[in-house]
Design a protein around this nucleic acid. Structure first.
Lengths: 197, 197
DNA sequence: ACAATACGATACCGTATCGTATCGTAACAT
DNA sequence: ATGTTACGATACGATACGGTATCGTATTGT
């Protein structure tokens, strides 16, 4: 049969354009909606209304509301570039400054508390949260490892503790004390941590 | 009229015991429920079911669901005692160790993410969150001010930055990296921060 | 041109929830 | 003892939401 050759060569890789359009429209709207109301107030009906994609179609692509939310959240994993200034202080400064500037504005900073809250009781979201967190700290961990490789940092240094010392104060200001995060604050944190290494 | 005298002497100060019983039963259940499901999944019907207090009665005391949630959240404001060991390091260690031991177990640590998330878009919850936050940091701020008074700490020290440097890493581990918070970690944070003052 | 398939519209069911109304009863004050 | 007040039980209306079923249409690959 000629169909066998077709189904072999194209199992489901090059999906119809319609499918791709629908998926993209829904995911974009879902992500936007998450930023506005968080996970709790997220509803499939609202996504259907805004995106123009029929609710029926949405349920053809995602079996349940949860699946759609999770899919949309997965798009939130930040892809930050890892700087390479040659010095540990330069790298750390570049990374933290970027985060500090992103924290008050980026879309994910409005969704993250919702994910943190949901992850507190939902293992699936705990997994997503873990992936997001790894994405956020990856550059920092890398420059720290590089510094260890160069000998700029003791091999016994506890990378995890250093990451918490650097990221913690920034996150604290964004979501707990709700104070502004200016450059002077970031530099004070960096100086404090690096001086103690 | 004799009633005028009565309504003057007892306007609503000594409320009926029944009222107090109902209020207490509802608030206790509400707080417990918040710990389990957060603000989002909180429902008046469930509070009525668990507490045994009729939904009608609940709505006689709180005009709306929001009011009840807010009232229950207000009970979450921690009343931590301020230690006085004589030294800044002793005081800070006492405070942070208590928080570190509370973070994985205390009821409020399960509700706080929910409040943080809600506060992101709801000014009323932002206000509650602010009060809770002040309660959490009050002892720390006090011992820092005392240290400044003693001359153990420079008067130009930025208390707010120090608080963020101390609390941030703990909160970060509890809700973001989800790593355990052992004593060694807490001591590493304290040592790092105090050494830089 | 034709068949397969994805889509939109609409209606629908079941459930949860907020908040109100009603009415009879129990606790309270005097 | 009596009137006032808070309470419980129940029912109700309105709304929102998750998820399914149906059916006709538009798009797509061949």
């Amino acid at each position: 049969m000629t169909t066998s050759k077709k189904s072999e060569s194209m199992p489901s890789t090059n999906i119809n354009k319609r499918v791709e359009r629908s998926r993209h429209a829904v995911l974009t709207t879902a992500f936007e909606l998450l930023g506005e109301g968080g996970v709790a107030s997220f509803s499939v009906d609202e996504v259907a209304r805004r995106s123009g994609v029929a609710k029926t179609t949405i349920y053809r692509h995602w079996p349940t509301r949860e699946a759609l939310v999770i899919d949309a959240c997965s798009r939130m994993i930040a892809e930050q570039e890892t700087p390479d200034t040659g010095s540990l202080e330069g790298d750390v400064t570049a990374i933290l400054m970027e985060i500090a500037h992103l924290l008050p504005t980026a879309n994910w900073s409005f969704v993250l508390p919702s994910i943190v809250d949901t992850a507190e009781r939902n293992p699936e979201f705990a997994e997503i949260h873990s992936r997001i967190q790894r994405g956020h700290t990856a550059p920092l961990r890398e420059v720290l490892q590089r510094a260890i490789g160069r000998g700029d940092l003791s091999a016994e240094a506890d990378v995890s503790t250093i990451v918490a010392s650097l990221m913690g104060p920034l996150f604290y200001r964004r979501w707990f004390s709700r104070e502004p995060i200016d450059d002077r604050f970031v530099q004070a944190i960096i100086r404090r941590v690096l001086a103690s290494l």
